[in-house]
Amino acid sequence: MSTESLTNIIQVEDLTTGYNGRTVLQNVSMVARAHEITVILGASGCGKTTLLKNMIRLYQPWSGSIRLFGKEITDMDEPEFNHLLQNIGVLFQNGALLNSIPVSENISIPLLQHTKLPRVLIQRLVRIKLHLVGLENAGHLLPSELSGGMRKRAALARAIAMDPPLLFGDEPSAGLDPVTSAALDDLLLKLRNDLGMTILLVSHEVPSILRIADSIIFLESGRVLFCGPLKQALTAGIEEVDDFFSKGSEGRRAG
């Protein structure tokens, strides 16, 4: 899918949604620009993951519009949306690897199902992805044999198996040690710089956000408090945003 001519890969307007009658997101509007890393952040329970899951239609919005690659997805039919999903990689919070098959097979699923690549190339690509996430020697292991951090990295390898133009990640560096977390940040930067990926992450790891984010979307109780470049956010003088970044940095230093 060509993303050359588009400025905004993701465009959400007036999105309202929730569960069991409880509103979680209220009139949320945001954009994620092409070839940028955008981070959704905010306190726990503010609706970050809900916003992400609405974008891949795991949750249905009550009202509003979500446009991916310039196409409205809320009323898109199933086959068309499935086709669109081939251009999207998703990293779930707990990895969501298929437990009954080894890591390498998990990574090869989208390649086997959605491409016509020869098997040798698929094997090679799996090795490349495993290497990128630092799991060269874990391809033959079952997900249950991996640690939490390794599972998350394996899940990232699966999410980027197809080099999707758009990558969603739900807290990719949560629970990782600082060295692995920094390596993961470097990988995300590499994906953005070399492959021109547009990346939308949910995160509240302040050091990681400061290292990789081009833009941020700050949510507070289901509403967007700020949406724009990171540098602007740090100087905008919004109390909640300043508080989040200062406390996050202090917490990291203290820890």
């Binding site: 094997q123 690509l125 490349i128 060269e136 020697n137 391809g139 590499k190 070399d194």
Partner: peptide, 21 residues
């Protein structure tokens, strides 16, 4: 230059072979 950088970043030439016990 951009193509060469991408090739260098994703090259699989010096990677170990997949485990095949």
């Amino acid at each position: 230059p951009h193509i060469a950088a991408t090739i260098a970043a994703f090259s699989s030439r010096n990677l170990p072979e997949a485990d095949s016990t």
